[in-house]
Amino acid sequence: MAIYGLWVINKAGGLVYQRNFADGLAPLTSNEYLVLAGTLHGIHAITSRLSPVGSSSGVQVIEGETFKMNILLTVTGTKFVLLTSLAETTADTVLQKVYDIYSDAVMKNPFHTPEMPIRSEGFDTRVGTLIGTGQT
């Protein structure tokens, strides 16, 4: 079981935070990460409209041959994306904890501008501790 990376995508589809935690992901440039985030944002918007019955919040899991992407959509439209191994079973719990850290360390920071890149050492440290030590 492994967590490979975390992305935070703002409500406009811009990548505001990206961090890799384990080997296994192809090395990408910052522009490639931005394009992937925008593409995922579009896919998420399309899938939220496809529900044949009632409303949908969009895709929550995308599974490939060697990895999974779990997506947590917040009420403000921010998306938290966790890239994991197929065997990872704690992704939903980890995403909720990351969102809690984001709410506490980023959104309570009077110097942070919403929808802009996250430049919070406290957020980065706490996320690293959460994911780096087995999701405590």
Rank of each mutant, 00 (worst) to 15 (best):
Y4C: 10
G5K: 03
G5P: 02
G5E: 00
L6D: 04
L6E: 03
W7S: 12
V8G: 07
V8A: 11
V8T: 11
I9Q: 02
N10F: 03
N10P: 05
K11A: 02
K11F: 04
A12S: 15
Y17S: 01
Y17N: 01
A22E: 11
A22H: 09
D23P: 09
D23G: 12
G24A: 00
L28V: 06
L28S: 06
T29E: 08
S30W: 11
S30D: 14
S30N: 12
N31F: 07
E32R: 14
V35K: 10
V35W: 07
V35C: 08
V35P: 10
G38A: 00
L40I: 07
H41V: 12
I43C: 11
A45R: 15
I46D: 05
T47V: 06
S51H: 03
P52H: 04
V53M: 09
V53A: 13
G54M: 01
G58Q: 01
Q60W: 08
V61S: 09
V61H: 13
G64L: 15
K68Y: 03
M69L: 15
L73H: 06
T74E: 09
T78V: 05
F80H: 02
A87H: 14
A87K: 15
T89C: 13
T89G: 13
T89M: 14
T90E: 14
T90P: 08
D92E: 09
V94M: 01
L95W: 03
Q96K: 14
Q96F: 07
K97H: 11
Y99W: 08
D100R: 10
I101L: 09
Y102M: 06
Y102C: 04
Y102P: 04
S103I: 07
A105G: 05
P110L: 12
F111R: 11
T113D: 11
T113P: 05
R119K: 15
R119I: 10
S120V: 05
E121I: 10
E121Q: 09
F123Q: 00
T125E: 11
V127K: 04
V127H: 08
G128W: 02
T129K: 13
T133V: 08
G134P: 08
G134L: 06
Q135I: 12
T136D: 10
